[in-house]
Design a protein around this nucleic acid. Sequence first.
DNA 1: CTAATTGCAAATAATTTGCACTCGT
DNA 2: ACGAGTGCAAATTATTTGCAATTAG
Lengths: 143, 143
Amino acid sequence: MQLEKIIQKLKEKGCKITPQRRAVIQSLLNFSKFPTALEVFNDIKATNPDVGLDTIYRNLNLLVEIGIVNSINLPGKDVKVFELSIDGHHHHLVCLNCGQADCLDYCPIDEQGLQTAAGSEFQITGHSLEIYGYCHKCKSALK
Amino acid sequence: MQLEKIIQKLKEKGCKITPQRRAVIQSLLNFSKFPTALEVFNDIKATNPDVGLDTIYRNLNLLVEIGIVNSINLPGKDVKVFELSIDGHHHHLVCLNCGQADCLDYCPIDEQGLQTAAGSEFQITGHSLEIYGYCHKCKSALK
DNA sequence: CTAATTGCAAATAATTTGCACTCGT
DNA sequence: ACGAGTGCAAATTATTTGCAATTAG
């Protein structure tokens, strides 16, 4: 199970496993989309009304630091959404209407060719590709 | 000159050309990097101490709406930087250390192949590719 | 003239932080 | 017990908005 594996990693880093920390991870696992901090908060509040939003932020940031989660900022919005990054390199299909982001296990980027295009002045370490458009639901709804 | 061309476009949209609006455009033209709203503000304040930061924001947003400028959000930071988009489709080399962003006139994306990979459920309308790494200055400085 | 634009100050919105208290180990 | 973690409220940061006064066309 994913939860335990992540908790294991946290323990290795010397972090304590509190109920709210466990809840944050569990919540991320449950979401079928990439939630904002607020959405995680509301999700957890349902079963655990005493959590503070700041605790959610602190835990999300911790997970980002550890490398278990990455934060993506959607264009236009000033919110970040959080994604469990258990799997490796991939990109996202971001719906411009509802904000839903899905993973796309396909990377058209040729780092080698990119480095050539960028020239030797700039040392490439990574890239982020977000693909914008409309998801199935929104595509039909907007018609 | 670029300034006049942009002003022409604004006039077509029925916008008035105020000194501060002209100053915002001129400032964007002058910058050798992509500035934040605050940087544009400070630049303009030097010669025109009475402008309000809000006017800068309003004008930048106007220019974004008209399509003359696009706003990019840097990873990690919660600021947007603004770029004159006189030229067409291109991407950016973003320095993770100093935040400087340069244009890269190269696009490795094959929209066709991408659409195939995404499947027919999702209708692609565009994409954003940011390339991260270290610029020449920071590369040597960090060594 | 008159609608767009401005500057100011106050309002939001997202996120962070200081602090005393609590809880995991 | 001890320090990491929490909840609260206040602080910060980036940006937006209401409004009365100003100004471009």
